[in-house]
Design a protein around this nucleic acid. Structure first.
Lengths: 262, 262
DNA sequence: CAGTGGTCTAGACCACACT
DNA sequence: GTGTGGTCTAGACCACTGC
């Protein structure tokens, strides 16, 4: 490649940043990881594509293959990259990922995700408005900044099961409309990748049990006394930048939220 | 693999066993991992203790330090071992783990786990009975096998917040009584480790929103129309052997279940 | 066949903890 | 200082993929 730092192996212990009192030792492979991350961020390699081979990257960064390997190992462990023996290392994507809905942990009680066929998506609402205080806080915006609000219902086997309210920062998602959403067949995060260059990398969820209000119970076709799972998700791109706030209401009469602990 | 000591490095690639159609290739470090796992299982090193140094293990298994390192890396990633630079590698434990309740994901809404002080534990009930069909299935027992049933309430800052019903296989937990539970101060899984040699290694949870019955609402001091989180957990020891079924009811009026996705 | 990631080794050196 | 885990290297070889 062109102008990346000539050699990453020279700036180790001190001296590079005299403003920091603590030595802040950083292993070489962490620095390489940071450089790869920068390239991912900059879009040098797009989701689904391969990145250069380990040998190429080792030459580019002037380090050994083992050091590159360890950097890639960590990025793969964080699901930013996917290794495929004999083929290469690929940028993770939400599209064509065979497992649709990478972040959705609601599964049918029988455990078979494929038993229901594809989900039915209904966009209920999609409008631009100004961020309320709590939405702004979650998205690291200021109160009043423009945001996009989307409400949709997911139905499995004809049963409305998930009611999602989403808030997206207006800037990165300029041009997103209800039609665009309705016409797109595939995971929403895949659309975000291909159309807006926004790649969701991780998320945090806060889960509660709640009762629906009148509108919610109507949209999910349940009585107002039906307990529902409230799942508040903040999804992040690279560098822990929040890009979506999502408040989901899940019916759990024939599904459950599955979680693995270790 | 054959036996433990002599040499693990000789049965690798091909040609040695023409009877097997599928090569079933297994990397050396995976075999080493299996051997370490066996020692953990057998109790050669107890929770909280160090295991032999990488160099010692390398000598013992007749492989290089790097191979042992990779095996330990995976075991550490699965939270079976804990590495501490300069000190050694330790067997993970639920006791003195600084983070009490390693598997509990319910946190106060302010996010500060320490803001409430230690939880108050009240054993409501503890009795032996015969496993029902669903309990037996979860614990890989037969219907009618002896099990221990425990019901307890956890209170934070004086507020009853968690109602747990637990079922434990009668065999491994012979001798567990209500007094024993009440007298023990510390995580329950720590008691299981020290008193019964049962180490919980991972768990799976199924989460739903439910309404409490009369008894449950009384024990949690909520009205019968208060939606609660139902958390059904199966906890496993080594080799995926289930050792506990736990049905928890969580109040989520000032707490939430926190989950990280990636 | 060549190219990719995956494994394994051996040795050097660094950072950290204890004594 | 000694011993631990942590980093880095260089090279050899293996397994998988696709031309």
């Amino acid at each position: 490649m062109s102008q990346t730092p000539p050699s990453a192996a020279e700036n180790l212990p001190g001296g590079t940043d005299p403003t920091v009192p603590t030595p802040a030792f950083s292993p070489l492979y962490q620095q390489i990881k940071g450089l790869i991350l920068q390239s991912l961020e900059a879009g040098e390699w797009k989701p689904g594509e391969t990145i250069p081979s380990e040998i190429e990257l080792a030459a580019r960064f002037r380090v050994s293959q083992g050091t590159v390997r360890k950097a890639i190992d960590e990025l793969a462990a964080e699901n930013l990259l996917v290794r495929r023996q004999g083929k290469g290392t690929f940028v993770a994507t939400h599209a064509e990922h065979h497992v649709q809905y990478r972040f959705l942990k609601l599964v049918p009680d029988n455990g078979d995700v494929n038993s229901e066929g594809p989900a039915q998506r209904d966009i209920v609402d999609c409008k631009r408005l100004r961020a309320s205080a709590d939405v702004a806080r979650a998205l690291a915006l200021r109160t009043g900044d423009p945001v996009l609000q989307v409400r949709r219902v997911l139905s499995f086997a004809g049963v409305p099961t998930i009611l999602d309210d989403m808030w997206l920062p207006g800037g990165p998602f300029k041009g997103l409309t209800a039609e665009r959403l309705a016409d797109y067949h595939g995971p929403m995060y895949a659309l975000f990748e291909t159309e807006f260059g926004v790649r969701m990398v991780r998320a945090e969820e806060k889960i509660r049990a709640v009762l629906p209000d009148a509108t919610q119970s109507r949209l999910l076709a349940v009585t107002p006394t039906t307990p529902l799972l409230s799942v508040e998700r903040v999804a992040y791109t690279y560098n822990d930048v929040p890009m979506e706030l999502r408040r989901g209401l899940y019916r759990t009469d024939s599904h459950h939220y599955r979680n693995a602990l270790s």
